[in-house]
Nucleic acid binder design. Structure first.
Length: 332
RNA sequence: CCGCCCUUAGCUCAGACUGGUAGAGCAGUCGACUGUAGAUCGACUUGCCCCCCGUUCAAAUCGGGGAGGGCGGACCA
């Protein structure tokens, strides 16, 4: 696999292809970032971007993980003390998951977001950005919640972080694209260069295949799930025998979440996947790539129940180190 | 600062005028059917009716006070 392909695989959007190709030509020592609101327990959404970070480390880039404590504060997630504590747990879980410690820099937002230059630039950005634009860029805002002033400052800071962390590339889920677009449009007017961006997909809701898997509602798979929890959650997932399900009764797009998890979580981390299957159903199957597995589900060669059993055990393997780390931290 | 509207099940809301301690849809749980899930069918569950005080035999409902949320007006020195 060439470097560009490694860097961009499993993404929904590359901005822009030519800029990322230029990076792929000489990735060594270049800096890529993703920002997270500190969360005490990582879930599959976090891990999806982490997979991309791992790809980029493999390509030779340096990874910067922003532990966005001030953002969390602006979003009403608690006191700085509480946020700091969850951030440390988050950091430990990322390392347990497989980010290379030597190539990963964890940075607290509060370590630079209160510097005078930063704050003055932030005010300049406030001056240039309409409320409407800022509010639309705020991915973290729960639907129905009314925006506070903090909520519109939030995305502006995200845009500015990309400059102040001295980055060459920004990544995030598709829900972050409006922030990244705001960054690309507005940073040049502050005299800064805008950076290329990669956007990872948003996983579908596990039980319906409609909309996104959310940590605030519905079923989420996280680092604290036991083997048994995983088995149950995956088994209850929506999984028609096709990669391309019909829309639901309301006309909403529907995905196959079980296949998505194979695609974005299992195959990126395992070279080959073995489906253990009783003899009466045809015996074991081995897959080296996602497409073959998806095609077999579609054709009926692979039954959804076998796919689910297999998925649960591979996810368990992925989560196990982080789960142990969490238990250690809680034992203290 | 002034005015108007909202607050009832996990969610969206009915019920309030005409007091008798609550309902619908969705969600959820459990079964049936599928070697998964969904769909479908069957059964079941769900409540400090925002808080306090008062009127009353009796208050989600009436009166007073308060809290939270939304919207608008005024002010623009």
């Amino acid at each position: 696999m060439d470097t560009y392909e490694l860097m961009t695989r499993n993404t929904d959007e590359v901005i822009t292809e030519s800029e990322v190709r230029a990076l792929a030509d000489d990735p060594d020592g270049k800096r890529v970032y993703v920002g997270y609101e500190p969360s005490g327990v990582l879930h599959l959404g976090h891990l999806l971007t982490a997979n991309k970070l791992i790809d980029l480390q493999e390509a030779g880039m340096e990874v910067v993980v922003l532990l966005a404590d001030i953002h969390a504060y602006l979003n009403g997630k608690g006191t700085f003390e509480e946020i700091r504590e969850t951030a440390e747990r988050m950091r430990a879980q990322f390392l347990a998951y497989g980010l290379d410690e030597a190539q990963t820099e964890f940075v607290y937002g509060s370590s630079f977001e209160m510097d005078e230059d930063y704050v003055l630039d932030l005010h300049e950005l406030e001056l240039e950005t309409s409320l409407n634009r800022a509010q639309r860029a705020m991915a973290e805002l729960q639907s129905g919640e009314t925006a506070k002033v903090s909520h519109v400052v939030y995305p502006l800071m995200q845009a500015l972080d990309i400059e102040y962390l001295d980055l060459d590339l920004a990544i995030g889920g598709m829900d972050q694209r409006k922030v990244h677009m705001l960054h690309r449009e507005e940073l040049p007017s502050l005299g800064y260069e805008s950076r290329p961006c990669l956007h990872t997909p948003i996983l579908a809701d596990l039980t319906t295949g409609v909309g996104k898997m959310s940590s605030s509602q519905g079923v989420t798979i996280s680092m604290e799930d036991s083997t048994e929890d995983l088995r149950e959650k995956v088994n209850e997932a929506y999984c028609p025998p096709t990669a391309d399900p019909e829309p639901d009764d309301d006309g909403n797009d529907r995905h196959n979440p079980v296949l998505e998890l194979f695609h974005y979580h299992v195959f990126p981390r395992f070279d080959s996947v073995t489906v253990e299957r009783p003899e009466k159903y045809g015996g074991d199957l081995v897959y080296d790539d996602y497409d073959t597995l998806a095609a077999d589900l579609d054709s009926g060669e692979l039954h959804p129940q076998d796919a689910k059993n297999t998925l649960a055990s591979y996810l368990d393997e992925l989560i196990a180190p982080g789960r142990e780390k969490l238990q250690e931290l809680r034992a203290d």
